[in-house]
Design a protein around this nucleic acid. Structure first.
Length: 857
RNA sequence: GGGGACGUGGCGGAAUCGGUAGACGCACCGGACUUAAAAUCCGUUGGCCGCAAGGCCGUGAGGGUUCGAGUCCCUCCGUCCCCACCA
């Protein structure tokens, strides 16, 4: 028997797809559109198995939808700006642009080899001047709209690499590369006003029904809307700051506990603190001490509350005779609320810790049910549960929510404050002091200030020959690039030398695919024809940042009139990672999978080094990483079993949202399925074979139609693994079916179905099978097989019969048989009667076509 | 500290609406083919008792709702993820 040879078959069909240009999306098509997109990769230079799984999933959906009659847009591009290119430039002296291009070429070839059905005519990289020029135009539109602004902002500064770091590059307070403690510096930065969209982004989550709840919850928490009160405490004239400011504004979500207030606290970087520090070294020393604290989880967990009594006092808004001390406290954050709080120790754990340390009063004002106001005390644990307000004048006896409303009303009436919504979300700082990024299209003029680059001068291109050999911003260091005339007055001026956060690049790329080379950044007609993305697929690690920025950008550009869609991604799927076991020598040194030979001794698995036979310790499967050397390249897998096996395996062993463990044995299993399918095509019944009735033929037709239905439903529901399981069963049924004129029609139908059903998973094999059937054209353009209810539904059903919930037998009844009919059958069944011996049937539950339960005693 | 998810054989997992738990794959074991091995093919495999027929137990633990619970509710245990001195 001949063997299936992927090495010759696979390239042949990829060439056939390319020649027929079958994956090009037609903008003018009258079919319903379907836009499927996987998150575009950073061109690191090599495709790993995780990428392969991601794109294989998207490809299953793309090929399935195409077969279902949709005009499918399935594009690919490159998230090509970012630090790795600068690091390569610094370490090897290469040009980051050339390095990136080279990587893109390598990865494109690998991706093409996977047989992913992509429309390559729309490919672009974010480092193309055409793309980032368009992005600059969008930036200027948003600037004009007031959604981009410039202010001084705090940044994470790495003193060793001399660069600003993104929050995610700061790990436990240290730079991710330098490991140096990160400093907070103030720099002039461009910001996007994402907070203007906080409500829209929050409310919009409710419309995203095809997003995982997990991601929606994470975004909701990230935006962090809270309802509360902004309230100004007036200073006690006897103890006011020298400048005589009127009061101190705090934010609270618990105005109901105002009568329990025992102090106010401001952040170490609050303007009041800074004012006091200027005249008092004790204050500035305290502020310096606060800055020392680490930001790691353990450090925050155990961090001591630190406070400094300023000596200032404020008047309680409800009790004019009472004054409260104002402290500086290390646990108050400047960038949330107003940077100042009132402390109610009885009902907030942090306030309580602080009050205990500095001997401040603890006044419970919320009484849990069943407690007595005179005997209820708070010791080391603050009471945060429900209850009735007490010791609080006009609030006494109210429940918490009612008391909040009453307190806000009273404060508003007195003009001391206003009910307010506060968000955890901050504006998005987009300036990066990096050379390999999209230049910010602004010119700074001493006389005219920050001037947008005139649209006709776009793109503002990166210069050739930047010097990356030193740490810091290579663009700022370029000898000539920044010098330019002011577009307004013509005087000597200077370009902004920052580049945009790469998250800006990825916040709108999915719209650019609609018309990747349009003059306008966004060609509205083209974009509206394709947007929103019907199905987006990517890693859960982008649950907040990328997915939130993309939602913001889509809304902002929609309000600008560039696109109709308000939300970019109608459906989102977050796929799991590919893991692999780890292997270590006794000495602890990591080994790659090819350096190891696995053996089974009965039920136990053992590993030894391939060369020396030295025993190897097998470790748990973990995410593939270079440091643990457990990386398997898709190319290696493809060399051994062909890319179809690799695709099939990464989709078959685990549900797609979960991690899948790569194993040789699993890949072999996928290969076995492929060979078995192919072997079924060794003899193919003629196209004009007629259907004959018969037990074997009918049985096969039932399996065929049921499998068509099940595989389609599995793909629609992102249960690719279940779909593969049905294919295994199907090929077994084909194999078991006797051959001959009696079954030719049924076999032909089955073979035609399996070729098309397996096409999304193993497209090369499917084309080969399709051609063996003698079909004209490609399976890639063939319609999805239809199933017929006649063959899917059984004429006769087997109903399990339970007695008191335990299975005790079964009866066969025609489909749709009435409850009465089934009950008669059960009562006439000898086996059931035997089981019921000595029991009296109290009740009979018949669920038609499903189950019978007899309640007996 | 806050939020969320998950827990099913030796392993990955299936059971989509509350209706036969363990589909399918891996591994193991047995068999066929082979001088032999690999590959391939066929078959067994949740646990316990039993020669068998069959019986009992069984979806992290305990309770509840229901004729019926892996699935719904409550409590607990464990694992993982996200956020975090967010007022």
């Amino acid at each position: 028997m001949k063997r299936y040879d992927p090495k010759t078959v696979e390239p042949k069909w990829r060439a056939a797809w390319a020649a027929a240009d079958v994956f090009r999306a037609d903008d003018a098509s009258r079919k319903p559109k379907y836009y499927i997109l996987e998150m575009f990769p950073y061109p690191s230079g090599s495709l790993h198995v995780g990428h392969a799984r991601n794109y294989a999933m998207g490809d299953v959906v793309a090929r399935y939808k195409r077969a279902k009659g949709f005009e499918v847009l399935h594009p690919m591009g490159w998230d090509a700006f970012g630090l790795p290119a600068e690091n390569a430039a610094a370490e090897r002296g290469v040009d980051p642009a050339a390095w990136t291009r080279d990587n893109i070429d390598k990865m494109r070839a690998e991706l093409q080899r996977l047989g992913v059905s992509l429309d390559w005519s729309r490919e672009f990289a974010t480092c193309d001047p055409e793309y980032y020029g368009a992005q600059q135009a969008l930036f200027l539109k948003l600037l004009k709209r007031g959604l981009v602004y410039r202010r001084e902002g705090l940044v994470n500064w790495d003193p060793v690499d001399m660069t600003v770091l993104a929050n995610e590059q700061v790990i436990d307070g240290r730079g991710w590369r330098s490991d140096a403690p990160v400093e907070r510096r103030k720099l002039n930065q461009w910001f996007m006003r994402i907070t203007d969209y906080a409500d829209a982004l929050l409310d919009g989550l409710d419309t995203l029904e095809r997003w995982p709840d997990k991601v929606r919850v994470m975004q909701r928490n990230w935006i962090g809307r809270s309802q509360g009160l902004r309230l100004t405490f007036a200073f006690d004239p006897a103890n006011a700051p020298t400048e005589g400011s009127a009061g101190l504004e705090v934010y609270t979500t618990r105005p109901d506990t105002l009568f329990g207030a025992s102090f106010l606290a401001v952040a170490p970087d609050h303007p009041l603190t800074e004012q006091l520090a200027a005249g008092n070294p004790a204050v500035s020393d305290f502020v310096a001490a606060c800055r020392k604290g680490g930001t790691s989880e353990a450090e925050i967990e155990s961090a001591e509350k630190l406070g400094f009594d300023t000596g200032l006092r404020v008047v309680h808004p409800f009790e004019p005779d009472k004054t409260l001390p104002v402290w500086v406290a290390n646990f108050v954050l400047m960038d949330y609320g107003t940077g100042a709080i009132f402390g109610c120790p009885a009902h907030d754990q942090r306030d309580l810790d602080f009050a205990r340390k500095y001997s401040l009063p603890v006044l419970p004002v919320v009484l849990p049910a069943g407690e007595d106001a005179s005997s209820f005390h708070v010791k080391q644990e603050a009471y945060v549960g429900p209850g009735k307000i007490c010791r609080s004048g006009f609030l006494d006896g109210l429940e918490i929510e009612a008391a909040k409303r009453a307190a806000v009303e009273r404060i508003e009436a007195a003009g001391a404050g206003v009910g307010a919504t506060v968000y955890r979300l901050r504006d998005w700082g987009v300036s990066r002091q990096r050379g390999w990024g999209c230049p910010i299209p602004v010119i700074h003029c001493a006389a005219c200030g920050a001037q947008p680059v005139p649209e006709g001068d776009l793109p503002v291109r990166l210069p050739e020959g930047m010097d990356f050999s030193q740490p810091g911003n290579a663009l700022a260091r370029h000898p000539t690039w920044r010098h330019v005339a002011c577009p307004s007055c013509g005087a000597e001026a200077s370009r902004d030398t920052d580049t945009l956060d790469t998250f800006v690049d990825s916040s709108w790329y999915f719209m650019r695919y609609a018309a990747p080379h349009a003059e306008e950044a966004i060609d509205r007609t083209a974009v509206d024809a394709w947007m929103p993305v019907d199905q987006y697929i990517g890693g859960i690690e982008h649950a907040v940042l990328h997915l939130l920025y993309a939602r913001f950008m889509t809304r902002a550009l929609s309000d600008e009139g560039l696109v109709t869609a308000k939300e970019p991604f109608a459906g989102l799927f977050t796929q799991g990672m590919v893991t692999h076991e780890t292997y270590r020598r006794q000495t602890g040194e990591w080994l790659t999978p090819d350096e190891v030979v696995l053996r089974s001794e009965g039920a136990t698995r053992q590993a030894v080094m391939a060369e020396t036979g030295e025993p190897v310790v097998i470790g748990e499967p973990v995410k593939m990483s270079k440091s643990k050397r457990n990386v398997v390249a898709p190319a290696d897998i493809a060399d051994t079993w062909g890319v179809d096996s690799a695709r099939l395996f990464v989709l078959s062993d685990s549900p797609p949202e979960r991690d899948v463990q790569w194993t040789m044995a699993g890949a072999e299993g996928a290969w076995r399925l492929i060979s078995r399918v192919w072997q079924e095509f060794e003899t193919v019944p003629p196209a004009d074979a007629s259907f004959a009735r018969g037990e074997a033929a009918d049985a096969l037709r039932r399996v065929t139609h049921r499998t068509v239905k099940a595989v389609g439903e599995a793909i629609e529901g992102f249960r690719f693994n279940s779909g593969v399981a049905r294919l295994y069963e199907f090929v077994a049924a084909l194999k078991a079916c006797p051959r001959g004129p009696q079954t030719d029609g049924a076999r032909r139908e089955g073979l035609s179905a399996i070729a098309r059903l397996i096409a999304p998973y193993a497209p090369h094999l499917a084309e080969e099978c399709w051609s063996l059937l003698g079909e004209q054209g490609l399976v890639a353009t063939a319609p999805w097989p239809q199933w017929d209810a006649v063959w899917v539904e059984d004429d006769e059903k087997t109903l399990p019969v339970q007695i008191n919930g335990k299975r005790r037998g079964e009866v066969r009844a025609p489909a749709g048989a009435s409850a009465e009919f089934v009950e008669q059958l059960v009562r006439g069944d000898a086996e059931i009667a035997r089981r019921l011996d000595g029991l009296t049937v109290q009740k009979v539950i018949v669920v038609p076509d499903r189950i019978v339960n007899l309640v007996a005693s």
